[in-house]
C-alpha cells in the first residue's frame, strides 16, 4: 500500500452525538446562517457559455472599433492584481508560519485576597455568536455553567460543570481546585490537586493506538492563592469572589494539561485588570458591570462582570487586521440561582 493510499485511510473522528440536538436547538432559537452559493456543474457550464459569448462579442466590437479608430493610448503595467496569484480566498500571509509568543510570568501580583463567601450556586446559560465587521455572522450555540455546593473528603467544595462535559471540584475556602475530570469520546483526563502539587492521568484509545499517561508537577505560586483549571468553568467562580473596583488588577495561574506540556506550558498566568465600567444589555437583562480585561500572554479577552451579583454577563474576544474585524461573544441568556441538585 502506498502512502497515497494511506492518506485516504487516515482515521477521522465521528461527529459528536449531541451535534444534531445543537443544530435543532439553534434553529429553534431563531439562529440563521447564510450559506455560500454553490452553482451546479450544469449551471457553471451555462455561465461559462454566457461568458464566452460575451467575450466574443466584446472582442469583435473592440476589433471593429480599433480598425475604424485606432487609439494611440496604451495602458502601461502588468495584468490586474487579481490574476497574479489566482488565490483571492487565501491571503499570502497564510503561508507564513507564526510562532506563538508566550510570556509565562504574571504581569501583576498574584491574587491572594478574595471573598469566597460571595460565590453562589446556580446555572448560567450563555449564547455564543460570531460577529464579522459588526454584523452577526453565525450562532455558536449555547453553553450552561452549573455550580452546586457539595462535600469532598470532608471539605465543603463547589461542584462545577460546563454543559455537562467536565467536572471540577473547587475548595470553597481557598478557591483552589481539588479534582478535575474531563471525559472525552475515547479518552479520559483526570487531575488531582494537593496543597502544592498535582497528579494527572490521561487514558484512552484502543490498541494499537492506546495512550496512557501519568505525570505530576509542583503547583506555581503561594499555597494561599487561588488557581484555575484551564478550559473549565473555574474562572466563573473566581470572578464572583474578586473584590473588583476601579483600578483593580491581579494575576492567577491557570493549569493546563501535563500530557500536552510539550505544546502548551503546564501553567500559564492570566492577567486580570479592571479597565472601566459599563451598562450592558444581554438576553438575560441589563446589568451594571465592571469591564475586566483577561490577558493570557499575548491573547486578550474582555469580560463584563455584574457589579452587584458577580456574574459574568458577557465575554468577548476581538481580533482584526486590515481587512476587517472579527469577534466572538458569549452573552448571558438565562440565570437560575436555585442551587442545582448535587
Amino acid at each position: 500500500m502506498t502512502w497515497e493510499d494511506e492518506l485516504r485511510k487516515l482515521p477521522v473522528p465521528d461527529p459528536p452525538d449531541e451535534l444534531l440536538a445543537r443544530i435543532l436547538a439553534s434553529r429553534a432559537a431563531g439562529a440563521r446562517v447564510l450559506l455560500p452559493q454553490v452553482t451546479t456543474a450544469n449551471g457553471q457550464a451555462r455561465y461559462l457559455r454566457y461568458a464566452a459569448a460575451v467575450a466574443v462579442l466584446v472582442g469583435f466590437g473592440w476589433l471593429v472599433f480599433s480598425t475604424v479608430k485606432p487609439s494611440p493610448m496604451r495602458h502601461a503595467g502588468g495584468p490586474p492584481i487579481w490574476s497574479l496569484d489566482g488565490m483571492p480566498l487565501f491571503p499570502t500571509t497564510v503561508l507564513a508560519q507564526e510562532q506563538r509568543v508566550r510570556d509565562v510570568r504574571p504581569r501583576y501580583a498574584l491574587i491572594t485576597t478574595t471573598v469566597p463567601s460571595a460565590v453562589r450556586a446556580g446555572r448560567w446559560t450563555y449564547e455564543a455568536r460570531w460577529i464579522t465587521d459588526g454584523v452577526f455572522t453565525s450562532s455558536q450555540g449555547q453553553r450552561t455553567i452549573a455550580r452546586a455546593a457539595s462535600v469532598h473528603d470532608g471539605k465543603p467544595v463547589w461542584f462545577m460543570t460546563e454543559s455537562g462535559r467536565d467536572t471540577v471540584l473547587v475548595d470553597q475556602a481557598s478557591l483552589r481546585p481539588l479534582r478535575y475530570v474531563r471525559p472525552m469520546r475515547r479518552h479520559l483526563l483526570i487531575q488531582e490537586f494537593g496543597r502544592d502539587s498535582m497528579v494527572e492521568w490521561f487514558h484512552g484509545g484502543a490498541p494499537p493506538n492506546a495512550r496512557h499517561f501519568q505525570g505530576s508537577a509542583a503547583l506555581p505560586g503561594p499555597a494561599g492563592s487561588p488557581l484555575l483549571v484551564a478550559w473549565s468553568s473555574s474562572i466563573d467562580a473566581l470572578v464572583q469572589a474578586l473584590p473588583l473596583a476601579r483600578g483593580w488588577q491581579g494575576s492567577v495561574y491557570s493549569i493546563n494539561w501535563l500530557v500536552y506540556s510539550d505544546r502548551v506550558p503546564a501553567f500559564t498566568p492570566l492577567d486580570l485588570r479592571v479597565t472601566g465600567s459599563d451598562r450592558i444589555t444581554v438576553p438575560a437583562g441589563t446589568f451594571d458591570c465592571w469591564k475586566l480585561e483577561v490577558k493570557d500572554g499575548v491573547e486578550k479577552a474582555l469580560v463584563w462582570v455584574s457589579k452587584d451579583r458577580g456574574w459574568i454577563v458577557m465575554r468577548r474576544r476581538t481580533s482584526s487586521d486590515q481587512s476587517g474585524e472579527w469577534r466572538i461573544e458569549a452573552r448571558l441568556a438565562a440565570v437560575d440561582t436555585t442551587p442545582p441538585a448535587p
Binding site: 473522528p13 494499537p208 492506546a210 491573547e299
Partner: peptide
C-alpha cells in the same frame, strides 16, 4: 480563511478535542 485572519488561538480553541493517534503507524 477566518481562522487565518484571526491569527490567534483562544484558550478553548487550543483544547485538543481529539487526541493524536499516538504510537500509530499513521
Amino acid at each position: 480563511r477566518a481562522r487565518t485572519r484571526r491569527r490567534e488561538v483562544g484558550i478553548e480553541a487550543t483544547l485538543p478535542t481529539v487526541a493524536p493517534p499516538f504510537d500509530s503507524a499513521t
